[in-house]
């Protein structure tokens, strides 16, 4: 049962775990999950969740184009290129 939930989780996280990793990681993950559950004794239902460390003023960017100067280094960083395209094996 626990194994199943962690297998689904690994799938969602795009991680392929070896048998050894599964054993090691699931054990540690369960240990942490139990630690998390210790929060259940905190009475917090009336509190707003904190989503940002600090609440600051509105921050926006003017709608202006500033091209990145070094576009070709971004292409060079990829594993495989076809002309100016990033290339990966077929999806279908």
């Amino acid at each position: 049962m626990e194994q199943d939930e962690w297998a689904v989780t690994a799938e969602l996280a795009a991680l392929k775990l070896s048998e050894g990793e599964k054993k090691r990681l699931v054990k540690q993950a369960e240990q942490m999950r139990k630690l998390y559950l210790s929060m259940s004794s905190a009475v917090v239902d009336n509190l707003e969740p904190t989503t940002h460390a600090s609440v600051v003023k509105n921050r926006v960017r003017k709608d202006e184009v500033k091209p990145f100067k070094d576009v070709d280094t971004l292409l060079d960083a990829s594993n495989e290129l076809d002309d100016r395209f990033f290339l990966i094996p077929n999806v279908l």
């Binding site: 989780t9 690994a10 996280a13 942490m32 999950r33 998390y36």
Partner: peptide, 16 residues
């Protein structure tokens, strides 16, 4: 590595 995988797993789990 292991520690990174573990934390990603945990983080994915708590958001499910």
């Amino acid at each position: 590595g292991d520690e990174v995988k573990l934390r990603i797993l945990l983080g994915t789990y708590v958001l499910r």
